[in-house]
Simulated assay, not measured.
Amino acid sequence: MDTKTAKLITALRDKARSLGFDDIKFARADSIPDAGERLHHFVDLGYHGTMAWMADTAERRSSPQNLWPDVQTVIMLAMNYGPGDAPEDHPLRHLDDKSSAGISVYARNRDYHDVIKGRLKEIAAFLVSRAGGDVKVFVDTAPVMEKPIAEAAGLGWQGKHTNLVSRNLGSWFFLGSIFTSLNLPESGAERDHCGSCRACLDSCPTDAFPAPYQLDARRCISYLTIEHPGPIPAEFRTAMGNRIYGCDDCLAACPWNKFASAAHEAKLVARDDLKSPRLTQLLTLADQEFRKFFSGSPIKRIGRNRFIRNVLIAAGNSKDPSLLEQVEPLLQDPDPTVRSSAVWAFGQLADQADMEMRRQAALKSETDPLVREEWKTV
């Protein structure tokens, strides 16, 4: 590496640090030749579930150069979002309080897309001002295989839970990428440090890993609570517990997390009211209230109906009959998915005599086949 390039890399690293990024690495645009084949295999097995966009964009996603032919180097950046060390910050604290709700750590903050993309643009503009070239920035929403590229760049390795793991950041960090037409020196790939550990695999409540390094999204609580439309499949409802948005079990189990909090401070501070919100509060959110409460949060993107569906599953799993006061009105909700989920929750909380009386009355008036089937089977 010549002196001029070395100074540029140092300047980029300093700029990234000043903007809150914990690491920055560089990969050649052609550094993931096998990623496309692995993606097609994933889609062929149906592991992508209803995420049709993964199949539709598979060709562009398989290589950075398929997305933008001019790219020569991909700059990958990491930003720690790990939970704090205080007991109230523990990512799985909600599991001990069934009347509270579990929200994935990454979603307890502002929407990371908004936070990171602006900062990536600053770094990209800085790069162009120093070295020229063309640039494009991406944060999760474009067809970019960020994790394989990040592994090739040396930010970390894809662990057995398929998420990226870093020896410095554990499993708690966001990724962002800058594509550039400049030919910058690559950092070198990171090797796998999982060894014989299978803590992440064993922690999964729904057995979503058919094998190490493979994820069947259709069984994953993160997919079910965020991407999946319609009712939660019956086989996963009990296992969901009170996880209402995402699932951190496999991330929290990773032993490499012990290095994250010790060496790096999270750049996004969680909202106190999203650490362990009460189910009683969430069940009563109408659409406008939902939008206001989750303003600036990634949770807002799934919409009120899908969110209430998730909260109703948690309510049913709580076995707390006092929640019937909030669940019962949702039996009349305009949305069929909400109504059907309310039926299930009601069935878990109400006594048998009340449930049977409600069933008979509902089957006389309910016209939606989805909701009728729930009344018949609950």
Rank of each mutant, 00 (worst) to 15 (best):
G118M: 07
P212R: 03
A29Y: 00
P64K: 15
T206G: 06
A361C: 04
E88D: 05
Q214P: 04
S166V: 06
R309F: 14
R110G: 12
I244V: 15
C194I: 07
E227V: 00
L127M: 15
R130G: 09
V338W: 05
P210K: 03
G195V: 02
W344K: 04
D333N: 14
G156N: 01
Q348H: 08
G170R: 07
F209K: 01
E235T: 05
S196W: 02
E265N: 04
L39E: 01
L370A: 02
A152I: 10
L95I: 13
A52G: 15
M51Y: 09
S295D: 15
S322H: 11
E325R: 12
D140M: 06
G195S: 12
S181V: 12
S63L: 02
N163C: 14
P148L: 04
H41T: 14
L182K: 07
E190Q: 15
G154L: 10
A208I: 01
A217N: 08
L323Q: 05
D2L: 01
K267D: 08
Q72D: 08
F26I: 03
P64F: 12
R38S: 13
S63D: 14
I308M: 01
A239P: 01
C254V: 07
Y245N: 00
S222K: 13
K121V: 07
D22V: 00
P336A: 13
H264V: 08
I24P: 06
T284R: 14
I178Y: 09
P298E: 09
S171E: 07
L175H: 08
L164W: 05
A199S: 15
G170H: 06
H193E: 11
L251T: 02
D2W: 03
W375S: 05
P212G: 03
R17V: 11
